[in-house]
Design a protein around this nucleic acid. Structure first.
Length: 495
RNA sequence: GGCGGCGUAGCCAAGUGGUAAGGCAGAGGUCUGCAAAACCUUUAUUCAGCGGUUCAAAUCCGCUCGCCGCCUCCA
């Protein structure tokens, strides 16, 4: 099965065929660096990180560009408000963005250009558009004339007449058509500016992405991604100005991720219903947020709530716990020769063998179907259940079983690499998650272990009243005890 | 007003023509001193509603209801 991708431009899932065999060029619209990132930004970046990882996983050589928009009205406004140079704002939020992305385990793209580093490229494209008659100067501004470009609105599938009818924007008198958009903006006194054939000014919002995409990836690229809210006007305008300038298709596959919602409403700055990445990472492991973001298909809306995050945490915990067991039981075992293994296995073993051997294919099928991470997670849980079953039946497994467990861990970790989860050594993850929660609960590991010791002694003496008293006391503080023949472990109660 | 999307169990969520993955929560069981964890069994004769196409529909078509998004900065 080939990889199939939903293309916003055609409105269909299409087989993915890059223009150069074996190579993929991919551009994703980054953030405007004027404020903290919220989990909507986290989603977009996690989604395209998984796309990037998966494409490489299946053998493509991927060149991935993600920009920083570091000149824009909002940045200037903030700089004015704080009374600082705009670069102070952009530097600060670029650092924050990088820190957030790093925490989320987002791979660093091949190139991370900034708009201000490409003013020359931008001016060249705008000049070409003016020369070709697609753009016109009005005072110190340069506008793109949407009526000259026949295919305008092909991405968002609207038409100019309807847009005019529903327009809520005040129309600038100098525009030839109300929908014309600015390519180059004249600088007001005190604003950051660059020299251009039209005087001092700065780029309009959309042109930078065209310029950087062409600079690093060429005039036609394979994949361009971003949030659904960028379809219009941002990506529509990128297409218009790029294709008008080069006469070539700009992007072959357009990908757009759905929003993160709060109570079914889009999370956004203007509604004020957003959570920053940092806030969320104070409460949850970064992998929990990543896992949560991957529980739904990337194009679907995803509701952020405590309950949903807690469920994601429980799910990830379950997988990590199983991985830890696999690691312990399969220590030193090889995972060779599983396919021709003798049929002397019992039912549970046979099921595990079947599941583990078929897992990579199931995973790939899910991911090939427009990066269906929700389905991929289903396959992961399915395998985890089989593993747990085998482990529950045989605490001291035979060599063949240890080989099955070793392979299980291997295939799960491979899948985890693609999704950017299970990146931590399982015990280390579980310990860290526990420590974080202990702090919240105001109890220490030593305290718990002391009480467990005390309880073990009571149990040995068959003083169950005391034993249960200790257990209940811990439970009241949200510590759950897990007894096993190897001793007593503990975990934090899911709330 | 224009355009687009969504509605699958108590909750989250896959499934786009062949008879409903998975997770969480719930119930019963195994294990346990009792629990917890884990495992086993179980929980949608049915996919918002109504019609239609088809041998066959959650999946295609039409209508109705409800929710959401874009059309203004937005991941």
């Amino acid at each position: 099965m080939p990889l199939r991708i939903y293309n916003t431009l055609t409105g269909k899932k299409e087989e993915f065929v890059p223009q150069t065999p074996g190579k993929v060029s991919m551009y994703v619209c980054g953030v405007t660096v004027y404020d903290h990132c919220h989990i909507g930004h986290a989603r977009a970046n996690v989604v395209f990180d998984v796309v990037y990882r998966y494409l490489r996983h299946i053998g493509y050589d991927v060149t991935y560009v993600r920009n920083y928009t570091d000149v824009d009205d909002k940045i200037i406004n903030r700089a004015n408000r704080e009374g600082v140079d705009f670069r102070e704002i952009t530097e600060r939020f670029i650092r924050e963005f990088d820190r957030d992305m790093n925490a989320l385990g987002i791979e660093v793209p091949t190139y991370q250009p900034r708009a201000t580093e490409h003013i020359g490229d931008i001016v060249r494209i705008v000049s070409a558009l003016v020369e070709k008659g697609f753009a016109y100067q009005a005072g110190g501004d340069v506008y793109f004339n949407v009526e000259r470009y026949d295919e305008y609105l092909k991405l968002s599938k609207r038409n100019l007449e309807d847009m005019k009818a529903g327009a809520r924007i005040e129309v600038d008198e100098r525009k030839e058509h109300p929908m014309d958009f600015v390519l180059w903006k004249e600088a007001k006194p005190g604003e950051p500016s660059w020299d251009s054939p039209w005087g001092k000014g700065r780029p309009g919002w959309h042109i930078e992405c065209s310029a950087m995409s062409m600079r690093f990836l060429g005039e036609t690229i394979d994949i361009h991604g971003g949030g659904k809210d960028l379809v219009f006007p941002h990506h529509e305008n990128e297409i218009a100005q790029s294709e008008a300038a080069t006469g070539k298709p700009f992007v072959r596959y357009w990908l757009h991720n759905g929003f993160v919602n709060i109570n079914s409403e889009k999370m956004s700055k203007s509604l004020g219903n957003f959570f920053t990445i940092k806030e969320v990472l104070d409460r949850y492991e970064a992998e929990v947020l990543r896992f949560f973001l991957l529980t739904a298909h990337y194009r679907s809306p995803l509701d952020f709530s405590d309950q949903n995050m807690n469920e994601a945490e429980a799910g990830l915990d379950r997988i990590y716990t199983a991985l830890a067991r696999m690691g312990e039981l399969a220590e030193g075992a090889t995972d060779d020769g599983l396919d021709g293994m003798p049929k002397k296995l019992n039912e549970a073993h046979a099921e595990l063998q079947e599941k583990v051997v078929s897992f990579p294919e199931r995973f790939r099928e899910a991911m090939d179907d427009d990066f269906n991470t929700a389905q991929a997670l289903g396959a992961i849980f399915d395998l985890v259940r089989c593993v747990n079953r085998v482990v529950a039946e045989a605490p001291k497994p035979l060599d063949v079983v240890r080989r099955l467990l070793s392979r299980s861990r291997k295939v799960l970790e491979e899948a985890g690499m693609v999704m950017g989860i299970f990146r931590t050594e399982p015990r280390a993850y579980l310990d860290r998650a526990r420590e974080r929660k202990l702090k919240e609960l105001g109890i220490t590991r030593e305290e718990i272990e002391e009480l467990i010791e005390e309880r073990s002694a009571a149990r040995k003496a068959r003083d169950f009243a005391k034993s249960d008293e200790i257990r209940d006391a811990l439970l009241a503080r949200n510590i759950v005890l897990l007894d096993s023949p190897q001793g007593t472990d503990w975990k934090i109660r899911q709330l």
